[in-house]
Amino acid sequence: MKHVVTAVVVSLLAYVLPADAQQAEPAPIPALDLSAKSPSATPVLTDEIIKKAVRETIAEEPHPPPAANQQAGVLRAGTVSMEERMSAAFDDAKVPDCLHGDALKLQPAYIGPIAVGGLLSLPWIVAAAARGKCR
């Protein structure tokens, strides 16, 4: 497969490039003269320049604002008791009642990417009851 892709790319390049461009050697890249202090010359990034930029950035704002939610993504197993965790696990595992709001918890009502709700979800509730996804 890799050889086929390579052959296709080479044949496309041969078709797109003119014949004289295929034979010509690539032009050498001109060397930058950084000794001239022209505004168009780009400075070379050295460790000293990077350190100076970091120091200036920290001096502008030494204490960044705190994150909106510092507990996001933190596992808080120590703060929740075993009883609360077990209760939550049993509530999640419990088969819902077909006549309550969480009837479609185990079988959501979707038509493609579109969620269906209200009376239009009645066929999904019947299917969930037939499959045992609600009681």
Results as ranks from 00 to 15, higher is better:
V10I: 12
L13T: 09
A14W: 04
Y15R: 06
L17C: 10
P18N: 08
Q22L: 15
Q23V: 11
A24C: 08
E25N: 10
E25Y: 10
A27C: 08
P28K: 13
P28G: 12
I29P: 01
I29M: 12
A31Y: 06
S35H: 07
S35P: 01
A36S: 14
K37G: 04
P39H: 03
T42K: 15
V44D: 14
V44G: 05
V44Y: 05
E48Y: 01
I49R: 15
I49F: 06
I50N: 12
I50D: 10
K51L: 15
A53I: 00
A53K: 00
R55M: 03
E56S: 03
E56V: 00
E60Y: 00
E60T: 00
E61I: 02
P62R: 01
P62D: 01
H63C: 04
A67Q: 08
A67V: 11
Q70G: 11
Q71D: 15
Q71E: 11
G73M: 04
G73F: 04
V74Q: 06
V74A: 05
R76G: 13
R76Q: 13
G78K: 07
G78I: 03
E83I: 07
E83S: 08
E84F: 02
R85D: 10
M86Q: 10
S87L: 10
A88Y: 09
A89S: 07
F90H: 07
K94I: 10
K94C: 06
P96E: 04
L99H: 09
G101F: 13
D102L: 06
